[in-house]
Design a protein around this nucleic acid. Structure first.
Length: 198
DNA sequence: GTCGCGATTTGCT
DNA sequence: GCAAATCGCGACA
């Protein structure tokens, strides 16, 4: 007699090993994975699919905060893969990244756009854009910088989603930077309406 | 200590 | 299309 599940299998959390790899590869493979967080006020769980990312590498990328630097905020980028890197940009918006590469090598992937998995959440949480998504989800440097994104005990963590077929992934140059504009390290899911247009 | 600027978003012309 | 908002950080004195 076959065993029948009454519930779906437990969702698996992405492991540090997933992030302990080349940053550009991680940026690509993060598409389709799920960011789990909580509503800043109600504490209700929110599940968001990652639909747009950018890779930043410390050694070869002049746009990376850790390019030629090891101190200050750049120090976070050398820490363990799977940690959050949150920084303030233009004095008013936070940006969420996940640290990549082995400890001691700098790299991170910027989350540029998310798609709330539950349709009812899509009108409520405006997660299209790196500054908008942190504002919508209540992500700040003081609360979330350097927390683990690979533990489901965190306020914020990553869980495995459905992989995106390579044919559905678009690779382009990155947005809003002045240096390293030639590097094609932005990835997004083709046709996804949450992706920033520029 | 002072100065200039940025991986953004918004509103106004 | 363009500029304002707003502040942490790095460069320089």
């Amino acid at each position: 007699m076959p065993h029948i599940r009454s519930n779906p299998p437990p969702a698996s959390t992405l492991s540090p090993d997933f992030f302990n790899r080349d940053t550009v590869l991680v940026a690509q493979e993060l598409l389709g994975q799920i960011l789990v967080c909580r509503d800043p006020k109600t504490e209700e769980p929110i599940f968001c699919r990652i639909v747009e990312t950018e890779a930043y590498k410390g050694d070869s990328d002049p746009a990376c905060h850790a390019y030629g630097k090891t101190t200050g905020r750049a120090a976070t980028l050398y820490k363990a893969p799977g940690l959050a890197y949150v920084y303030l940009i233009y004095g008013m918006y936070h940006c969420l990244n996940v640290v990549t590469e082995p400890e001691g090598i700098a790299g991170a992937v910027l989350f540029r756009a998310l798609e709330p998995v539950i349709p009812a959440h899509q009108a409520q949480y405006k997660t299209h854009g790196p500054g908008r998504l942190t504002r919508a989800l209540g992500i700040t440097k003081t609360q979330h910088n350097e927390i683990s994104l690979t533990s489901n005990a965190s306020d914020l963590y990553l869980q495995a989603g459905a992989p995106i077929p390579p044919d559905n992934i678009v690779q382009t140059t990155r947005i809003g930077i002045r240096q390293g504009i030639d590097l094609p390290w932005r990835f997004y899911i083709a046709g996804n309406k949450w992706v920033s247009v520029r």
